[in-house]
Design a protein around this nucleic acid. Structure first.
Lengths: 181, 181
DNA sequence: TTCATTTCTTAATCTAGATTAATGCCCATG
DNA sequence: CATGGGCATTAATCTAGATTAAGAAATGAA
C-alpha cells in the first residue's frame, strides 16, 4: 500500500491508464548517516523519496567548499534536477540514518506536460548553485553561453541585475577579463 | 489554431478529456515596451506566454534596487511562481513591444501531479531572489521561519552552507543581531 | 540636427562577508 | 573517564563587489 501510493505520485496519467504500474522499477533502501548515495558526475541518476530520516544534496566547488542545495526530511523528494542522460551536479548523502524510496528519474519525465516545469527547475537549480558558489565573472560567462540571444537584446545593466551584481561591478569584471587574456 | 495549441499546453489531461477546452479563460494582449503588466502585491495573478517580444520579471528591494528574476523571450512562460491566492513578489513588464497570451494561473494548478513541481519552483524562486537581494542575516531569519524543524536537526555550519555563507560569518551575524536587540 | 535621457565606464572609497588562525566545547568511542 | 575529532566562537586581516560620483558614449525623440 505504501509502495503503491508512492509510485502513483510519480506516474504520468498515460502510464497509469495503461496499467503499467507493475513494470516500474523501484525499491527501498536504508542509508546510514554519512553514506553518499549519489556522486557528482554519476549518470542514470535516481529520484529519492525520503520515508524516514534526512538527506541532503550539495555541490563541492573547485576550492573544495561545500554548498548545500537542499535538505530532504521525511516526505520530501531529493534529486538532481537535470535531464536523466546528463551527469549530475550534486552529491546526495544522509545526515541521519534514513529510509529512502529509489525511483527511476525517467519516470518523472514521461508526462510531456511536466517537461517545461522540470526544465525550469533545472535552470533554477543551476542558478542557485552559481549564486552560492561562483564569482561574478563566472556567472557572467555562464549567462553569455546560455543566453547569447538575450545578451544582444537588453542593456548590460539588466544582465548585471540578473546576475545579482551592480552595473559598475560588471563593467569592471569584464574589463579585467580582457586585460588578463 | 494558435489558441488551441497554446491552451492545450496548459491543460491537464482530465480537463482535456472532458472537452472543457472552450470554457477556459484566455486572451491575447499587446504590450508596449516599458508597460508593466503585473505589480508586486497583485492578487489573482496570471501566467504569461510570450508569443513575440521580450518580457521580464523582477523585484524591487527595500533599498529600491531592481533584481531581475527572469527574461522571457518568444516561447517562454513568465509568471510569479507562487500560489494563485497569494500576492505576487514580482513585477512583470515588457522590454520590447510584445504579444502575450494571458492564462489563468489556476489552470496550471489543476493537475495534482504538477503540484509538487510548482511548489518546488516557488521555493527556488524565493531562494534566488533572497540570494540576489538579501543580506546574510535576512536569509538566515527567513530560513529560521521556513524550516524550524531542520534548524534543530543539522549543525549550524550546514545552515551557513545552505545560505551561501561561511560558518564564521553566520556566527558573527547572529551575535550582532543579539547585541543590537 | 539638437537636446535630453539612458547607458557605460572609470576611479575613489567603503563594507559585508571571506580567510586564516587560535581557543574552548561538546560529545562519542576506546 | 580521558581523549580526539567535529563544532562554534572570536579576532585580525583581506578582498570582491557595493557605493558614490563624474564623465563619455550611445540612443532616442522632437
Amino acid at each position: 500500500m505504501l509502495y503503491r501510493f508512492s509510485v502513483l505520485h510519480y506516474l504520468t496519467d498515460s502510464l497509469y491508464q495503461r496499467q503499467l504500474v507493475q513494470k516500474i522499477y523501484m525499491h527501498e533502501i536504508h542509508v546510514r548517516k554519512g553514506e553518499i548515495i549519489q556522486h557528482t558526475g554519476d549518470l542514470n541518476s535516481k529520484v529519492y523519496r525520503v520515508e524516514k530520516g534526512l538527506l541532503r544534496s550539495y555541490t563541492i566547488d573547485e576550492k573544495g567548499r561545500e554548498h548545500i542545495f537542499m535538505f530532504g526530511p521525511e516526505g520530501w523528494i531529493v534529486a538532481d534536477n537535470t535531464p536523466a542522460e546528463v551527469p549530475v551536479d550534486l552529491y546526495i548523502d544522509a545526515l541521519e540514518d534514513s529510509t529512502v524510496l529509489v525511483l527511476d528519474k525517467d519516470l518523472s519525465r514521461e508526462n510531456p506536460k511536466a517537461q517545461p516545469l522540470l526544465r525550469r527547475i533545472a535552470v533554477l537549480q543551476k542558478r542557485v548553485i552559481l549564486l552560492m558558489s561562483a564569482s561574478a565573472l563566472d556567472r557572467y560567462e555562464h549567462f553569455e553561453e546560455t543566453y547569447p540571444d538575450i545578451m544582444q537584446r537588453v542593456p548590460q545593466k539588466m544582465i548585471a541585475s540578473y546576475l545579482g551584481i551592480t552595473p559598475e561591478a560588471l563593467s569592471k569584471v569584464k574589463n579585467n577579463r580582457v586585460r588578463e587574456q
